[in-house]
Simulated scan of single mutants.
Amino acid sequence: MADQPFSLTRPDVSAASRPGHLPVIVTYLQMTAPPAHEPVRQPKGNLSLQRANPPTWSFYRYLYDTVGEPWLWHERRRMPRKELERSILDPLVEVWVLYVDGTPAGFAELDRRTSETDLSYFGLIPDFIGHKLGPWLLDSIIRKAWEGGAKKLLVNTCSFDHPKALPLYQSMGFVPIRHVAREVRDPRLDGVLPRSAGEHIPLAG
């Protein structure tokens, strides 16, 4: 029988098979050439995109925790400080911060430590969601990745993330290459995240 064509659409999430765990679908995407479209127009207002070079651990954790809490980002909350600092202080890791009127509004992280550049993290602080900043920020980071010598650009997103995340990546030129079904321990049950985090995701049973 011929192989089934790969679906660009994320599969449905099935129920968790283990108590205390959450089912999640992770979609991996890649971009193999710089974007062909015109740069996204910068939104109105006093915006700036600056590299934290390097970021302090506390400032990075503020960005990661504030941006990621609604979407259950938990991996780097669990990471020992020294291990996290080794990563974010590496000169091949770039943390770009979006400011609006001098206030941090979001960030993106490019990891160039391998031959394939990874857009490790990307997101907006909740107060700034819905102000049309995401497409401009993402487009700007993609261009910085290629201008900095990327040969291929990778990113992943999951079913915990904002529902517009996957379509946004695709609209910017990323192409899904695989979907992976996983189960993760609900970080709210272990106190890694507050129980109020990820309101759109029910607590694991």
Rank of each mutant, 00 (worst) to 15 (best):
V26W: 08
D111S: 08
V24I: 15
Y99T: 06
V26C: 04
H37R: 14
L49V: 06
E116G: 03
P54C: 00
A108S: 06
R86M: 13
P91N: 07
P54G: 00
W71V: 11
I25D: 07
V67P: 06
F107K: 02
A108E: 01
M31F: 09
W96M: 06
W71N: 11
P70H: 05
H37K: 13
K82S: 15
G106V: 02
I25P: 00
Q42R: 15
T56E: 08
R76Q: 14
L92P: 00
P19L: 13
V24Y: 05
L92V: 00
P39A: 03
K82Y: 11
L98R: 02
H74Q: 11
T56K: 11
L29V: 08
R86F: 10
T32S: 12
G68D: 00
D111G: 04
P70I: 01
W73H: 04
T114I: 08
Y28N: 10
W57I: 00
F59Y: 10
Q50Y: 06
W71L: 11
I88R: 01
Y60W: 13
E109P: 04
S17T: 15
Y99H: 15
V67F: 09
S120F: 03
S14D: 12
W73S: 03
V100F: 13
E94N: 10
S48M: 09
V97R: 02
P55F: 01
P43W: 11
W73E: 01
T66M: 02
P43Q: 12
R61S: 10
L92S: 07
L49C: 00
L89D: 12
F107P: 04
L29Q: 05
